[in-house]
């Protein structure tokens, strides 16, 4: 959604905006982001969800475990706002814990995948030639097996329960490839830019060029890709847990809750709908934030995703 409404003819006009308050680039990016209404609303909603997931368990009476005091299969009511399960869990308690675990996995994956993927992609793009060809074949290897299948196979193969960080590590191990591709593409085109050549002509070393020119200019796409990776990781983790190959009971995640309530959607809808809605809202807000960031950081970038 970044197409110009104006044909290319009057190019010089936008360059004449000398005058007015001087603003730093960060402020400009911020103001552009704030103008993106969907992204701003999303940010607020997401922050509220994160707060609820991490602070909620301290405030709410019930945790995510089975308690004898909890009656089975109670529909939402004053005692249990989101009802209870057949086994005797409080659904609100489960929901907060589940969201927390899901978010922890997603953020860890995003950080891991972004760091590994950016370094791999940047090196591949910067050195080019045979190094690039070789490094990209490795990325291909990571991309030819469907992601969810791969991580589910590994995680499910582990006996005796997988914890949230194991799940995060397994997803992270496979999820960096897409980022590597994005970053490589950006670096490849940046490398040919005249301002990089200008730095070379001034005698700059490769490390100077990478730190001063390539990384700052690639930061935008990397931040956007990292944001979108959070959403990808959330859906992956949810899918794994739904198949019961993710985080294992007694711990809980949102996907697992949906998996457990799979056959109860019509009889006990309070078990089935809340975790799904929460997953949907979290992913939706993250995608909107990613979109807003893209517009704010680089208005010309187009939407590329799997």
């Amino acid at each position: 959604m970044s197409e110009t409404k104006v044909p290319p003819a009057p190019r010089s006009t936008d360059a004449e905006s000398v005058g007015g308050a001087e603003r730093t680039q960060l402020q400009m990016i911020l103001s552009r982001f704030v103008r993106h209404r969907a992204a701003m609303v999303s940010l607020v909603v997401l922050v509220l969800i994160v707060l609820g997931a991490f602070l909620g368990p301290f405030l709410w009476r019930w945790d995510h475990l089975v308690h004898l005091e909890i009656p089975a299969s109670v529909p939402p009511g004053p005692e249990h706002p989101l009802g209870t399960t057949t086994a005797g869990h409080d659904v609100l308690g489960q929901l907060m814990r589940g969201a927390q675990q899901t978010l922890k996995v997603a953020f860890t994956v995003s950080i891991m995948g972004t760091v590994v993927g950016s370094l791999w992609g940047a090196a591949s793009g910067y050195y080019g030639g045979r190094v690039d060809a070789l490094m990209m074949r490795v990325v291909d290897v990571f991309m030819i097996v469907p992601l969810l299948v791969m991580v589910a196979a590994i995680a499910g193969n582990v006996r005796g329960g997988t914890t949230w960080y194991a799940v995060a590590l397994i997803i992270g191990f496979f999820a960096w490839a897409q980022i590597a591709r994005v970053v490589r593409g950006v670096v490849l085109s940046l490398r040919e830019q005249e301002f990089v050549e200008a730095a070379k002509a001034a005698g700059a070393s490769p490390s100077w060029i990478i730190v001063r020119h390539l990384l700052p200019n690639a930061a935008g796409p990397i931040i956007v890709a990292a944001t979108l990776l959070i959403a990808v990781a959330i859906l992956l983790e949810a899918g794994m847990s739904f198949l019961q190959f993710g985080i294992q009971p007694p711990d809980i995640s949102l996907g697992q809750m949906i998996g457990d309530a799979r056959t109860a959607a019509s009889t006990r809808p309070w078990l089935f709908y809340p975790p799904g809605v929460l997953l949907l809202v979290v992913c939706l807000t993250i995608n909107f934030i990613g979109d807003g960031l893209r517009d704010a950081l680089d208005p010309r970038q187009t939407m590329v995703r799997r």
């Binding site: 197409e3 859906l235 899918g239 949906i258 799979r262 959607a265 799904g276 949907l280 995608n287």
Partner: peptide, 30 residues
Amino acid sequence: QYSKLDYTLTFIGFLALAMPVFWFAGIMQQ
């Protein structure tokens, strides 16, 4: 471009991309 229809389709797109497949499957089943 920039019509109501465009915005609607864009929003559906965002919604669909954020949708957990298995949850949507459950809803469709119902």
